[in-house]
Amino acid sequence: MAKEMIKPYGDTLNDGMVQLAFTLPVAGGPRAKKAAELYVAKLNFTDIAVSFSREIADGFTYFVVYAKALPELDYSTVQATEARVTKLDFYRINELIKTHINRPLVVVGASIGSDAHTVGIDAIMNMKGYNQDYGLERYPQIEAINMGAQVGCEELVARAVEVSADALLVSQTVTQKDVHLANFTELIELLEAEKIRDRFLLVAGGPRISNDLAVELGYDAGFGPGTVPSQVASYMVTTLLRRKGVTGFVD
């Protein structure tokens, strides 16, 4: 394949223009500014301009820097996946469940571990939905159970088994020291130990989640920021139908 070399773009192709903002643990002044410039040089930038610097706390100085990046990347070698979603609308999703599954789809959602934030799981599950897109609770053909925040993995799995869930939606919003990874992994390990991993479609969500990361962690799919409920519903329905061998459902 032909190489396709790229660099950041400012106003001229391959100018490599990048904006940076950071703090150094030093008092303000000309020496601090010089340190910022030298540090950015170490990051492999040239044409460094420290456009702003201010001591924002005792012994801490904040900088805004413009600089040109040196390395190039061969774009032809870049690969990334997105969760395989055939985008369907609210009515089509309900109709497919009714016709092919013949009972409501049971979906259990929770924000697991110590995470107290329900904003992600609520955006997908609550009646109201997100960004003009109805939440799963609004779907007549989906039984949506939102367990809320700070749900233990055992609690989530117990509920999923109790209601014979088809899919689990697991959200992690705020994460500190990468605890979201540990939480996601804990759930997978629990399901595998109970030998019930394959019973459920497992979907991860949150601002730090990509489909690649979710799949790497052992989930079926992952959804990041900006995802609307119908995307998740489309993914669940089409995947479950494919697994049942039903195809040709896309108009």
Binding site: I56, A57, D58, F60, S114, D115, Q150, V174
Partner: peptide, 20 residues
């Protein structure tokens, strides 16, 4: 201390998430 110096009037210390 840094925030106080920059002009904040009120400092809230966030509580460990599951304490409630």
């Amino acid at each position: 201390r840094a925030v106080a110096r920059s002009g904040a009037d009120i400092i809230a210390v966030i509580r460990s998430t599951a304490q409630s």
